[in-house]
Every structure is written in C-alpha cells, then in structure tokens.
Design a binder for these strands. Structure first.
Lengths: 138, 138
DNA sequence: TCTTGACTTCAAGTCAGCTTGAAGCGGTAT
DNA sequence: ATACCGCTTCAAGCTGACTTGAAGTCAAGA
C-alpha cells in the first residue's frame, strides 16, 4: 500500500508539516500510525485531508470541522450531517456570488486604469470613472 | 447631503463600529469629518468602504490594501495599480475555481447522505460512496 | 562509525484582525 | 435636571490558526 511521510503530504497539500501535526492534535486527522516513531499517511488520510481543505476553504472554522466530523462519524443521524452540509452549501454559494461581483468590480477598475494609462500616453484628457462604474464583463 | 453615523454604516456593512474606527486608524478610511466629536460618513466613505470589502473579500490583507491605496492615490503610475489589480484578479479567479470544485464535492456528499437516509428509512443496504465520488452536478 | 536530514514532542511564541474596557462627552427624552 | 444612549479616545486584550525552538530520535549513505 502506498504511504507518505509528513513532508510528502505537506508538499502535496501546500502546507507545513507543523500544520498536519496541528490538525492531528485537534483530532481532525486521526489514527495516523507511526513507523519508528514517524507518522505514516495513506490514501485514507489524504482523502480526509482533502475533505478538511474543502470545508475549510468553504469558510468553516477548524472548530466547526471538529463538530462536523463528530456528528458524521458517530453515524447517528444523517439528518444532522445533511443540515451541516446545507449550511456549507449556502456559504459556498454566497461566497461564489460575492466573488463574482468582486470580479466584475475588478474588471471595471482594470479597464479604467488601462484607459488612464492610454490617455496619459496619448496626452488626451483622463477617462471618467462614471463611464466604467456599471459596465458588465463576461 | 445624506450622511450616516458610525452605527448606521456598521449596520449597513455588517460590521462593528470598532472595525470602522480600526480601518480609519490604519488609514484605509480617511477624511472622516466630525460633528460634535462624532464621525460623519457620506456616500464617498461608503464607496471607499465597498472597495475595501471587495478587495478584502478577494483575499487581500489590510496591509496590501494600504499599499494599494497609497499607490493609486499618489497618482503616480497606473502601471503599478494595474499590476496589483492583476494579482487580485488572479486570486479571485482561482478562488472561484476552487470554490466551484468544493461546491461539487458538497453536492456529492449531500446526495450521498440523502441516499443513506433513504436507505435507512427503507431498510435496504447503505449506498456506496464510490458511486458518488465522481458525479458532476449543475 | 559518523554525519546528515527529516522526523519526533512539547511548550511557548507569533500574527492579523479585530474587540473590549475604562473614562468621559453630546444631544435628546422624560 | 437628569437619565440615557450612542458616540469618543486610548491602551490593552483576545481568538484562530498556525509556527517556532529546544532537545532529542531514526535510518540511510559515505
């Protein structure tokens, strides 16, 4: 079975070994066996880590993640897990919507500053932000 | 001219008055006049605050925001402002992409746990995650 | 055998981004 | 007149998420 050292996992997930130890300390990663005192990670752990990163990226705190895993792993109530998944879903969707609005705004600013640059080069009057403030980009 | 108290602005932007004072202390918000010692905000300030929130939401730190405003307000070099806008643009785009991947994953989990729930109710065998792990949702 | 480099634990430290508390002021309502 | 509420400043405190440092272990290569 394919295994990984803490350093390999850290590199693969763009994090530091200390972060992996920290997650283990919090109980987010567990049952990590040791060989000669060193942690040995398998595909199981990588999958778990992917889940952690996914939810974290969605805006969940590490504490919420603990809660989430506690409730799904107790096998108790799929309804509770579903409720948490629903809130994560909501958060992701509103985050995407917000980022897309931010994206539009950045495009407007970019075009505006490009126009400033062009105007400076051509020695013509500066553009007016009002002309850019409501544009919509693809 | 329409003006706002710190409390009104805070409510409108879903933040605390202390945060607005903090941003002012950092120089992100400035030229906020006082009437009888109290801050008076206008549409100008709200626009500025929107910009701050937009960039912050895109992942810029408050320090980067200071840098950004310093460089755009010195009117010096539109090229420098554009360079910063480009990095913000990149960040937003990769964040959106990542969130969309996360969204897919959440949908898979939701459907999986719905299936678990249904299986429990019907008294049939539990579903298999492998059947859900690569599905694609709209 | 010795060195090297990546690992180990544990406690303490760091950093961003606010938040809180104390002490006081201003304008409106009773 | 007095109470009150939301504001003021300033300094200190807090929280989440790691990171760092010290002191030591392990296994592979020269």
């Amino acid at each position: 079975m394919l295994t990984y050292t803490i350093g390999e996992v850290a590199t693969r997930y763009h994090m530091r070994p200390s972060t992996l130890r920290y997650y283990e300390e919090l109980g987010l990663l567990y049952d990590v066996p040791r060989q000669g005192g060193r942690r040995v990670y398998t595909a199981q752990h990588l999958a778990r880590l992917s889940t952690i990163c996914c939810y974290k990226n969605a805006g969940m705190s590490l504490e919420e993640l603990q809660e989430f895993f506690r409730s799904t792993e107790s096998h108790a109530d799929p309804a509770k897990t579903l409720a948490i998944l629903d809130t994560v879903d909501d958060r992701i969707q509103s985050q995407i919507a917000e980022l897309q609005a931010n994206y539009q705004q950045i495009q407007r600013k970019k075009h505006f500053f490009l126009a400033i640059q062009a105007a400076q080069a051509a020695g013509v009057p500066q553009p007016n932000w009002a002309d850019y403030a409501h544009r919509h980009y693809a």
